[in-house]
Write a protein that binds this DNA or RNA. Structure first.
Lengths: 220, 220
DNA sequence: TAGATTGTTAATCGATTAACAATC
DNA sequence: TAGATTGTTAATCGATTAACAATC
């Protein structure tokens, strides 16, 4: 009952998404069992961490065999809400916003794009997939009428908080922020930030700070 | 000299990118000083964390005034390698790959896209910005001749590791992986994962697990 | 059975927060 | 000066790893 007692730490949640992906792959390959050691090796973790993490979602294996792949997939799917259908709006119809609206994986994985919005009059009225780009003044009404729960922010950084506030006022439940600017939200509204440029900075730093060291042989 | 003694933890690096973004904004507004308390409030941290983090990059403030914004920006820019020009290739010319290749922010922030690759014959030869989509068999040669150091993976998940291996063999220094699949790389090659669908799963879980609680008043 | 792998406890490690003297 | 905010130490908190008895 660990999952009922306490909230699961974000670091653990992040790894759970990895286990889910891996379990999905194994399922397709008709593999039935997986050990904590295999999961750990495939995902760059320790087997101890894997076992502790699965405790968080009350998923138990069997000594000597490991974990049932299909059960793992099911438990994680439910835990992460990947079985639900989430109505999702995209704000910003630039390169990134359009790409996300068209990104087939989102729809396949349960995030149905029900609207795309922009303030640029040259974009409003154009079509992305089978959606018409709407002006941002229609965003609040759309969130309500289409029962959107998730909002994706893909606008220029200067409009980030304004767009977030508008969605929050309209009752959005969660935001995926793709801009560099941090979003402030009340506790009831969840925010996950995917900061592409910042990720490249992180990568650049890691490359730079490793440059001094001697080149090492491969993998492990 | 803390920065010379030890490597900076990844969690800290993640926050440093936020300080940099915030400092850049303040610079544009001609603000000269910022306190750890203000940084903390704007970015959802504690002032203690901010002060500890800046110690990692040997950046010191002045009691009663705070930190010099421009100095902070400069130090973090250098630390994160945001002042360098990084030659970057994009693999995958689907919706996402094309959007990233066109993403102006990358170029502005020092990541110059010097090539885009795909194996789909319908895409090869088409143009994205002023780049011609090249077949993946040309990727290794291109990495070498164009001195690419950073590779962005935006292919279907099933090809992720193969594409990564190809780039690693060609001498790439860092990979930004945008697929759901974990990438294995030797220690000398840095990997940062930006898992869009997984981020939505995280968001979905946070929304779900919060649903039970009473709605709360805003921000405070 | 013997051996492998779990569930779980304890030890370690690291990161965050608190507190406060130093100081501008 | 008095007050605010730093740099830094110590305390707390949490996450990861190690170890091993339980068990399939």
């Amino acid at each position: 009952m660990a999952s009922r007692r306490k909230t699961v730490p974000r670091a653990v949640i992040g790894r759970l998404t990895k286990y889910l992906t891996y379990a999905q792959d194994l399922c397709e390959q008709k593999v039935e069992w997986v050990s904590s050691a295999e999961l750990a090796e495939a995902l760059g973790l320790t087997s101890s961490t894997v076992r502790q993490d699965l405790l968080h979602v009350d998923f138990y294996g069997i000594a000597k065999r490991g974990y049932r792949v299909d059960g793992l997939r099911q438990v994680l799917t439910r835990f992460l809400g990947a079985d639900a259908a989430w109505n999702t709006v995209v704000v910003g119809a630039g390169n990134l916003g359009k790409a996300l609206a068209r990104h087939g994986e989102f729809a396949r994985r349960g995030f149905r794009i029900v609207g795309i919005f922009d303030n640029d009059p040259r974009k409003v009225g154009s079509h992305v997939n089978n959606l018409r780009v709407e002006p941002i003044r229609d965003l609040p009404g759309s969130i309500v009428s289409k029962k959107a729960e998730v909002g994706i922010i893909a606008v220029p950084a200067t409009s980030t908080q304004a767009v977030a506030d508008l969605m929050i006022l309209s009752g959005i439940k969660g935001l995926l922020n793709l801009t560099l600017t941090h979003v402030l939200a009340p506790r009831g509204v969840k925010v996950v930030e995917v900061r592409l440029t910042a990720s490249l900075w992180e990568l650049a730093h890691l490359i730079k700070s490793d440059a001094g060291r001697a080149a090492r042989p491969a993998r492990g």
